[in-house]
């Protein structure tokens, strides 16, 4: 297939005899937003952690730009051009917003081993450009430890974009945010991704965000994919309604 950035096939993982992820297969293309949804405990996080190298799958294929990345460390996967954000924000609390982004840029440029020069003197315009993209430039000097939650999410997004990724993995990007902020954040991510032709895979609980932003949706239940397709198709799917959406939607 043309433009496929991430291809997953026959992915398996069991914990203590219980199949957490079973025979999962899907693909994401450049500039596409794919949402992975499912009830709690369906295996979304397990799936995600196998993609980013945190967990090793028991079997299956994970191909990034045609290259099998199974068994690679999170670090190596990042170096290939995969960015990620976390469900619970993970930023460097004692560093300023700008320094957080600079840290990712320095790492990408291989400049972290310098021992006596002062950190922060380089790559400043690049950091500010990323911060401007996510609307955080005006808070560049503040330490991340005092930021509001929604702002931390934006900083994370800027950090995830620092290595010019071709694939962005976002684990519950809007968890813990106010409803309006949620859609706004995901809209921002979607706009940036489409403009830069980044493939995005995200998990999400908020159905308003999923149905308004995703190009396609896949649904996981008890470790298996039970449905996939355009938002309207998934919304109409009876199995999905039964396990997840309920009658309210």
């Amino acid at each position: 297939m043309n433009g496929v950035v991430l291809r997953v096939d026959a992915l398996h993982k069991a914990f203590g005899g219980v199949q957490a992820v079973e025979d999962v297969a899907f693909a994401v293309s450049a500039g596409e937003l794919l949402a992975l949804i499912g009830p709690n405990g369906a295996g979304k996080s397990t799936c995600f952690n196998m993609l980013n190298g945190q967990l090793e799958p028991d079997g299956g294929l994970i191909e990034f730009e045609g290259r099998n990345i199974v068994g690679m460390s999170p670090r190596a996967i990042w170096r290939l051009g995969v960015g990620r954000t976390f469900q619970i924000t993970a930023t460097f609390a004692s560093l300023s917003v700008r320094e957080n982004v600079q840290m990712a840029l320095y790492s990408h440029a291989g400049k972290l081993t310098q021992f006596l020069s002062r950190f922060g003197s380089e790559l400043r315009p690049e950091a500010d450009a990323l911060l401007a993209q996510v609307g955080m430039l005006d808070q560049a000097e503040r330490p991340c430890g005092v930021l509001a939650y929604g702002d931390l999410k934006r900083v994370e997004l800027a950090m995830a974009l620092a290595n010019q990724p071709r694939l962005l993995l976002m684990d519950e990007p809007t968890a813990g945010m106010a409803p309006r902020e949620r859609v706004a954040l995901m809209e921002l991510a979607a706009r940036l991704a489409r403009a830069q032709k980044i493939a995005v895979l995200f998990t999400e609980h908020d159905m308003d965000v999923v149905f308004s932003q995703a190009d396609r949706i896949i649904v996981l239940d008890r470790g298996r994919l039970i449905a996939g397709g355009l938002p309207a198709e998934v919304r109409a799917n009876r199995d999905v309604q039964a396990v997840y959406l309920g009658s309210g939607h």
Binding site: P39, N40, A175, H205, L245, G246
Partner: peptide
């Protein structure tokens, strides 16, 4: 928070 719609019900 964080519950599937059916459980919320």
């Amino acid at each position: 928070e964080g519950l599937a719609p059916i459980i919320v019900h």
